[in-house]
């Protein structure tokens, strides 16, 4: 299932209030920083939805 990120809402690490909170909060390693942006590794996602709930920009939703 994984998640999807709305690129218009996402702060792209640099403008994220906590510089990539989703990357930091995902303990599955399903969200990683890649060239100053967030990349999704779908097969690692466990659908715990922690990133969805905690994204300060509400940029993440279920795929």
């Amino acid at each position: 299932m994984a998640v999807k990120i709305d690129p218009d809402a996402c702060g792209h690490i640099e403008n994220c209030p906590v510089q990539g909170l989703c990357v930091k909060i995902c303990e599955q390693g399903a969200l990683v920083e890649e060239n100053g942006d967030v990349a999704i590794i779908a097969e690692k996602c466990d659908d715990c939805d922690l990133c969805i709930q905690n994204c300060p920009n509400q940029a993440i939703s279920k795929a």
Binding site: V18, I25, L50, Q53
Partner: peptide
């Protein structure tokens, strides 16, 4: 506020 990130020391 965001209780989980605060509890984990991320914020």
């Amino acid at each position: 506020g965001p209780t989980v990130p605060i509890a984990r020391g991320l914020i």
